[in-house]
C-alpha cells in the first residue's frame, strides 16, 4: 500500500526559494538480508526519485541499498510559475509512485 506525504508551500512569491520535502512509504529491502532458511531476501528499493516542475526536471536522486525505509528527501527550488510539482519514485519491481501538489506563485 504505497503512499506519500509532501511538505510543500501552497503559495510562494515569484523568485522565492522554497523547500520541498517528500516522504514515501517503502520497505527499501536491501537485498543483503536473509530469511531464517538462509535464502536471500531479494533487493526491492526505490532506485530513482525525480521532481518535475513547469515541464522541467528540477531534481533527481539515485537511491542505493543503504537508504533507510520510508525515505525522506528534502531539496529546494525557485518558484517561477503556478504549475504543479510532480514527485515520482520508481522501484526495482517497476512500481512507480506519483504524487502531485499544486503551487500558486504570486508576483
Amino acid at each position: 500500500m504505497a503512499s506519500a506525504l509532501i511538505d510543500a508551500p501552497k503559495t510562494a512569491k515569484r523568485g522565492e526559494i522554497i523547500t520541498l520535502r517528500a516522504l514515501v512509504s517503502h520497505q527499501m529491502e536491501t537485498g543483503y538480508r536473509r530469511e531464517i532458511s538462509g535464502a536471500v531476501i531479494p533487493r526491492l528499493i526505490i532506485h530513482t526519485f525525480t521532481c518535475h516542475y513547469d515541464g522541467e526536471e528540477i531534481f533527481r536522486a539515485d537511491l542505493f541499498p543503504a537508504m533507510a525505509a520510508n525515505p525522506l528527501i528534502a531539496f529546494t527550488t525557485v518558484a517561477t510559475r503556478s504549475e504543479p510539482l510532480v514527485f515520482r519514485w520508481l522501484d526495482d519491481a517497476g512500481v512507480a509512485i506519483t504524487e502531485t501538489v499544486q503551487l500558486v506563485v504570486t508576483a
Binding site: M1, S3, L5, D7, L23, S25
Partner: peptide, 17 residues
C-alpha cells in the same frame, strides 16, 4: 512535530482508508 515528516503518518493514512 511535523506531520508531513513523521513517517508514522504514512500508517495513519492507511488507517484512514
Amino acid at each position: 512535530r511535523n506531520d508531513l515528516s513523521n513517517p508514522a503518518m504514512l500508517w495513519v493514512r492507511e488507517g484512514e482508508k
